[in-house]
Amino acid sequence: MAAALHAAAEHTLPQFMRVRARRQELADTWTLEIDPGGPFEFLPGQFNMLYAFGIGEVPISISGDPARPERLVHTVRAVGRTTQALAALGRGARLGVRGPYGAGWPLDAAPGADVVVLAGGIGLAPLRPALYRLLAERARFGRVSLLYGSRSPQQLLYASELRRWRSRFDIEVEVTVDTAGPEWRGNLGVVTKLLRRSSFDPANSMVLVCGPEVMMRHVATDLAGIGVPPARVFISMERNMKCAVGFCGHCQYGSAFVCRDGPVVPLERLERLLGVREL
């Protein structure tokens, strides 16, 4: 009993950690490197609840390298009160961390299969730990592709890493943007178009998707169209996670508590619900 209580407390109390470094990624997006004060083990795709003292707490996916648990990395888009406060935390500042929570990307679900990582906008952040692992354990997978769509060339997240990955021969990196000037020599068009161009084998692949919900709905339809089984498609859902342990009820989506049963969910489970408005 005492042990159970202790475990419960661990998951509901924030631990205060120090920001080690802060880097601006985009106009409204910062990456914080946090000193977890010891190894912080997590699964790619999991999230933490980040607490800005006296202001509020928000779910933010972990975007660092799972092989480097001594660095806790979060990329935060400053769109509200709490995320603005978090993004403004400088070196040495403290923030509360609860987690890690939720189900991650099931990288072991399909050994040897091609892996397609499809990200839109800030959706690349929760997928980056998966990419680190895919590349670290490259031999375990078939073809690996990163298909990334963003608003403009200026708003490509992790641009230097994208360049680095692109120069590798063991991963296909395709980037597209919604708008760009004539100097842009890359793709301009909707991210789903990259799926049709990519060279993976639909029948023997696993697709990891994170981006705006409407993008994921279109991706789901397109993947079905080219013959990827829905059991092999995983999407990272976003809902109003508050307690992160399945008690507060806010993040329900159908019968799933996104905090606990997700955020990564097999498309198979949600397929029927994705088209339902205001669910």
């Binding site: 003292f53 202001i55 509020g56 507060c248 009820g249």
Partner: peptide, 24 residues
């Protein structure tokens, strides 16, 4: 019904903050 909201209640000096759970 078990849904709840979490609220952060800081003091004016911003030195102390409480986390409350309320029925939602």
């Amino acid at each position: 019904c078990f849904c709840s909201a979490q609220e952060d209640v800081p003091d004016l000096a911003h030195a102390r903050s409480e986390r409350w759970r309320r029925w939602d």
